[in-house]
Design a protein around this nucleic acid. Sequence first.
DNA 1: CGGGAATGATTGAGGTCTCAACGAGCTTAC
DNA 2: GTAAGCTCGTTGAGACCTCAATCATTCCCG
Lengths: 176, 176
Amino acid sequence: MTANHSATPTAEKPDPDEPVRWLDAGEQRVWRSFLEASRLLFDALDRELQADAGMPHAYYEILVRLSETADRTMRMSELADSLSSSRSRLSHAVARLEERGWVRRQADPADRRGQWAILTDAGFAALVAAAPGHVGAVRRQLFDPLTPEDVAALGRISDAIRRAGTCDGPVTGSQL
Amino acid sequence: MTANHSATPTAEKPDPDEPVRWLDAGEQRVWRSFLEASRLLFDALDRELQADAGMPHAYYEILVRLSETADRTMRMSELADSLSSSRSRLSHAVARLEERGWVRRQADPADRRGQWAILTDAGFAALVAAAPGHVGAVRRQLFDPLTPEDVAALGRISDAIRRAGTCDGPVTGSQL
DNA sequence: CGGGAATGATTGAGGTCTCAACGAGCTTAC
DNA sequence: GTAAGCTCGTTGAGACCTCAATCATTCCCG
């Protein structure tokens, strides 16, 4: 579902001879502030989840996605795409979640390459237990410091970045 | 330099009995969009740097900081603070950078606990070689998709998040 | 039908990061 | 001067992620 349907033949790797368009002072400031803000935010969220729920944020997101489908079930690849995650990362993560009994895997009888990831009751319970603390942390670290206008702007900005970045993800499959 | 000088006795861990303020639909959308945008952005930058310069973004930032001081030298703790990095992370990273000959360490004769991290000529050269590609990636993935108003807003937003997050970083030292 | 390409998913090796524990040196106060 | 308590920085174990290679299956097309 992450295909590139744009009509323009976008050159992903730009001409290396083209002169570098360095960041001006303002861009520099914004970029560094954004870098630090992101690091503080994600580090804080990861620390909170790890301390209070014993899971990294990546695992939390997997549980959330699974919990939102009707049957708490998703194909591995679908799950990976919905998280903008590599298949490898997801495979490793689900293996750990399976060890904990929070997820189980089941082969698809129709397409025998495919695997279903299924959220167990224990996994759902872990998610329910983790959610309040996590949401609280998101609120404190992200939404409380921002005005409603900021939040709206952040939404627009994120959408723009996603639209730009969603085409050149990790290289997958053989494309010599 | 990351001390909390605020006069208000801010309760870092809020009352757990307080009802959870869940995210409304709009916040939910913004948060997920921001999460995905950040992941796409940082993954893309890391992949570009790793492929073109053989270093993760964290190492690039270390080299940048060192390159910006007059003598290309910084105390380990100062460097860690300036990167919002844990001392442990920095220690490991600088150890790797030292193996590559990009940084060297030298004990401070005045305070013999302290270590200076010094950017070598080879390290500076590696940075110079990496910079154009990296800046190009930042431009393509972040600044090109944004309007100037977006960029300004992102700066304000990041500053706000930093101000909120800068007080409760990783717990360091003994504070029973 | 059969062979090559594409897809779904996993694996292992290696690298980075976290956490907790530690060691060594400085500082303070008695 | 000396013991307690900082601060500076490192270390080791273990967790997570990346990359490349792999395997099994399915799709496509002549």
